[in-house]
Amino acid sequence: MKLPNKLTASCRLSIQFALASFALGTLILGLYLITANNVFAVLGFGFLVIAVPFNSLILLSVFIQLLTGKLSIKEFFFSSYVLLLNVPIALFYFHIVTTYTRL
């Protein structure tokens, strides 16, 4: 799998941001599950509080770029899809944490 060479900067940024959010979220969850230390649970929720508005802002900027013609419709769909993919993943992680800690 390879990404097309001529992606716009905003499309690349949104993909990178989504991947970074996913990687960091997974890392925090992994550390929490390994250490069972509640510090990582708090860190995870803190990360969520920061990541949600940032991802939303990028999603908004991608939408504006579509409207202003700076982004093709395919790039828009792909960028927003990758960004929104983190929502079910975050919910799934949340489910794991609440199940694991028996909240």
Binding site: K2, P4, L67, G69, L71, S72, I73, K74, F77
Partner: peptide, 22 residues
Amino acid sequence: FHSFFYQIEEPEITTPKKAVDV
């Protein structure tokens, strides 16, 4: 997005006209 990754379809060239369309 498979066709998007492998550029199976011709990439759409974005023009200012498209922005007006949207």
